[in-house]
């Protein structure tokens, strides 16, 4: 793979929804490029299209027009099976409500993408131990989700997202359901994971503190990129992010 090529690229991404007789344009031509190893935050007020953008980037939904290129593959040309494979092998998802399987243990939940891929778990024993270590849950490996706190559950979800060494990890409000302390721990974990595992991370959030962990912050308004902090724009800092958010919501 060409190392200079972006891990993920969106080209003139448009997404329309039909709500009754009305057509709502959630995204109005978004061009975006994310390089390998980057930590990107997407921010914006409610209804700005940030979750829609994340879903399209992860191949959960198809754009009305435009293209998402993930690891060199244009997603619009893939069928349902191929999209599922991409999600399983190239993408890791982290949700606000963790979405763990209550009947499986923490270790089994982490290994779920491998189970789905049909690989024998014994081959990945070391990797699972490594991940449990990373998320600091080695002593909770055999616990079921209902025996874990919210923060611990989200750590399991993060380990699950990294288990297949994906090209990109997409997190939708990963701290939205957590208290400040647990939220901070999760963000630090994401940052550490990126450093240790060399992953690319995109988070959607409307928490400026969470976004401040990113290298680049993209602000959306009315389905378009309104501003970017980081690489070419201003410096990523809590103060700048809050100022931008205030401006967007004004």
């Amino acid at each position: 793979m060409d190392m200079s090529a972006p891990t993920l690229q969106t080209i003139q991404l448009v997404k329309q929804y039909q709500m009754g007789s009305l057509f709502v344009e959630a995204l109005k031509g978004v061009d975006l490029s994310i390089q390998a190893g980057e930590f990107v935050a997407i921010m914006g007020p409610s209804g700005s299209g940030k979750s829609t953008l994340l879903h399209l980037m992860g191949g959960l939904d198809k754009p009305t027009s435009g293209e998402v290129i993930l690891a060199g593959k244009p997603l619009s040309q893939l069928n349902d099976y191929e999209l599922a494979r991409i999600r399983r092998l190239k993408v890791g998802f982290v949700f606000q409500f963790y979405n763990l399987i209550p009947t499986l243990t923490a270790a089994e939940n982490i290994a779920l993408p491998l189970l789905i891929d049909g690989v024998p778990l014994r081959r990945y024993r070391e990797r699972l131990d490594e991940l449990l270590e990373l998320v600091n849950l080695s002593d909770r490996a055999q616990h079921k989700p209902d025996q874990l706190s919210g923060g611990q559950q989200q750590r399991v979800a993060i380990a699950r997202a990294f288990v297949n060494q994906p090209e990109i990890v997409l997190a939708d409000e990963p701290t939205g359901n957590l208290d400040t302390r647990s939220g901070t721990a999760i963000l630090e974990l994401l940052q550490r994971s990126r450093a240790e595992l060399g992953a690319t991370i995109v988070i959607v959030t409307h928490d400026p503190r969470a976004a401040s962990y990113a290298q680049r912050v993209i602000f959306l308004r009315d389905g378009k990129i309104a501003k970017t902090l980081g690489s070419e724009g201003g410096e990523v800092s809590l103060k700048n992010i809050m100022a931008e958010m205030e401006a967007l919501e004004a």
Binding site: G58, L60, D80, Y81, A84, R85, I86, R87, R88, L89, V91, G92, F93, F95, F97, N99, I101, L112, P113, I116, D117, R160, A161
Partner: peptide, 14 residues
């Protein structure tokens, strides 16, 4: 939601 999550982490329809 759980089935949706499984699909999103790569489970195929089959």
């Amino acid at each position: 939601r759980e089935i949706g999550a499984l699909r999103s982490i790569g489970m195929t329809k089959f």
